[in-house]
Design a protein around this nucleic acid. Structure first.
Lengths: 244, 244
DNA sequence: CGCCAGGTTGATTTCGCTCAAGCAATGTGG
DNA sequence: CCACATTGCTTGAGCGAAATCAACCTGGCG
């Protein structure tokens, strides 16, 4: 009978919390996994709860096991904008942690979620024990940076309609599926308000953009459900307007 | 008489290329500095030359010793926008290097410059020999990311005038000086076109914004020289509009 | 000189924001 | 179970900021 710790090549210790296969945490070896597991603290959140608040010091980072979390930024006038959506396997709060800054945004639970917390000290310990973890963060954040820079371009140069189309296509992976007749069905996890904020627009403008898309026979929306009838043409519209 | 390599605490080997005191490269120790020096390749560029091109693979990173370099992004329609200005001590191209991506922008020499090149392989070697170098990059890029995310907010919500004011204030450190009578004199290193692209506007709108600022007695511009007569009021205008 | 790129200015248009009303879906308390 | 708030979505009217289009300066420079 195989004893615990007997096996050599296969992972002897499992990470206590579920992450993507390509997650940076996969780089941890036995000892480090144990350190991780000893420190990690998982709990459930109800929709509407707040994981962390803007301007709070960053105490560590959060790994989403299940559910969905919206990261929003608020300005002094109380206007708010969603800047990222977190899905299972994603990490939140790593930017302020690595930058040694306070949180620049709040994380708000959108669907009941299970989230694991790893304190900053442990994270830094792990990074120093296993520099590869740091490099993975480096790569990830560098990629994310490229995305943000590109989107910056976009807001300035493109119409609300095109920005909306782009967002829909980005959301496809996470909350879309193709039905049998080839139409793409998106189950948007956000209010119009939040949707609008993600592309730097007002909800009314988004409504009108949806209206126009319907008029052109590209897509129709009812509430938070969007049916993209002409996915190909939608992509084309994007490509004829976007550089990347 | 002290022999070469005699001293213990003071840096025995100098970096072959001039960097800021707080540069990430300062973390390198003797061996690593030598590796760096062996690999680094400095040369001069004339204004107008290109250091690297958008979409080219990233072969390494560039350290600006002197001069000035504009980093611009171009879209499929040929519209171009300046996304960053590089000054002596800055590094360019580290984002694509770390993200293992191609360049997402071009670097164009604006004033005659001297630039040092460190190939990717050496950079990765140095990072693995000295994880602290990686951590410094991590921190820097994480901070930069926060900045970009904040500016995202700005483009969508603020008027051209306020965005221009903000840019002027950001440029103050690099190309501004206070004259004896307290006015701030900025020597802008850019055409109106480029200036406009940095804030997501058209050159005509920037012209009009300058016109308005002059009318309000805040600043006056003649060509690329801007005189800010009421620096305090300019700052106030900013603070009453910006969240951060 | 004339040329030309960069800059300003003016006239017009357009896009998206504001404000306001109406509607549907959902919740809540009597 | 119904009257009613509440919340999110849509639509319309009006407006304003900035883009577009176009003309006209201005200052180098061959």
């Amino acid at each position: 009978m195989p004893k615990k710790g007997d096996d050599k090549t296969s992972a002897p210790v499992e990470l206590k919390c579920k992450v993507d296969d390509d997650s940076e945490w996969r780089t941890l070896n036995g000892d480090q996994v144990e350190l991780f597991n000893a420190a990690v603290n998982c709990r459930s959140y109800k929709a509407g709860e707040t994981v962390f608040m803007q301007d709070d010091p960053c105490k560590g980072l959060y790994i989403i096991e299940s559910g969905m979390i919206a990261v929003r930024k608020m300005d002094s006038e109380g206007r708010t904008a969603v800047i990222r959506l977190g899905y299972p396997g994603d990490s939140l709060g790593y930017r302020p942690l690595l930058a040694k800054e306070n949180h620049r945004a709040s994380a708000e639970v959108t669907k009941d979620s299970r989230v694991c917390f790893v304190d900053a000290k442990t994270t830094w310990q792990l990074i120093s024990k296993n520099p590869d973890l740091g490099l993975r963060f480096l790569e990830r954040i560098a990629k994310a940076m490229g995305e943000v820079e590109s989107r910056f371009f976009e807001v300035a140069a493109l119409s609300v309609r095109v920005r909306l189309v782009h967002l829909l296509i980005l959301l496809r992976d996470k909350c879309g599926r193709f039905s049998t007749d080839g139409t793409l069905v998106l189950e948007l996890p956000l209010t119009r308000q939040d949707l609008a904020s993600m592309i730097g627009a007002r909800p009314e403008s988004v409504s009108r953009a949806f209206h126009d898309l319907k008029e052109d026979g590209l897509a129709s929306s009812s509430g938070r459900q969007v049916h993209v009838t002409q996915y190909k043409r939608l992509i084309e519209e994007l490509h004829s307007n976007i550089s990347v």
